[in-house]
């Protein structure tokens, strides 16, 4: 009797731990550009940062702690941070969610459902140049695009951009 109880307990515990590990990965929703617009409208009246990143982009990883610190600093202010991964949606479980966990992201983030290009064109149709990462689109409280921060930035750069977009 005892001979099978212990392995059974070990088996159940491993499944339970596996589930905990699975659920502890940050939530990531696959979205299209119209869905992103809806998410942004939900936060109208706030300064919105849409940060485009990818797991293969080293400078994105460098600046992410600064963005997370920014989110914390402005948690009680009219500010929203939207992290949008431009990785291939097929790489969500293998690369994106583990990376977000590694970076300490504990809130819902997003990944482009198809290609990142339609997002970038729609977000700034006048933009004539190439599309690089990381890219942070800054929207003011009226929802107008007021800045495009291309390349890796420091916390103070982001903080200044939020303050400016808040009109202070």
């Amino acid at each position: 009797m005892r001979s099978w109880i212990f392995p059974a307990l070990v088996f159940c515990a491993s499944i339970a731990l596996g589930q905990v590990k699975q659920t502890s990965l940050p939530k990531v929703e696959k979205i299209t550009f119209p869905e992103l617009e809806q998410i942004m409208h939900r936060d109208s009246g706030k300064v919105v940062f849409v940060n485009l990143w990818a797991t293969w982009c080293k400078p994105c990883m460098v600046e992410m702690p600064a963005l997370l610190r920014l989110k914390k600093t402005f948690s009680k202010k009219k500010f929203t941070l939207i992290l949008l991964s431009t990785d291939d949606a097929d790489d969500l479980e293998r690369d994106v969610r583990p990376m977000l966990r590694k970076m300490g992201v504990g809130f819902t983030t997003y990944i482009v459902k198809d290609s990142p290009e339609p997002f970038m064109i729609a977000m700034n149709p006048k933009w004539n140049g190439a599309i690089g990462l990381p890219m942070t689109y800054v929207y003011d409280t009226r929802g107008a695009l007021v800045d495009m921060m291309l390349g890796s930035h420091e916390y103070e750069d982001f903080k200044d951009a939020v303050t400016k977009a808040m009109g202070k």
Binding site: N128, G129, H153, D160
Partner: peptide
């Protein structure tokens, strides 16, 4: 300094001349 930083970022990302 902060203003200059913001302006330089904006110029870099938004106003860098791209060939037509």
């Amino acid at each position: 300094i902060a203003l200059l930083l913001i302006c330089s970022v904006a110029m870099y990302a938004g106003d860098m001349k791209s060939l037509n």
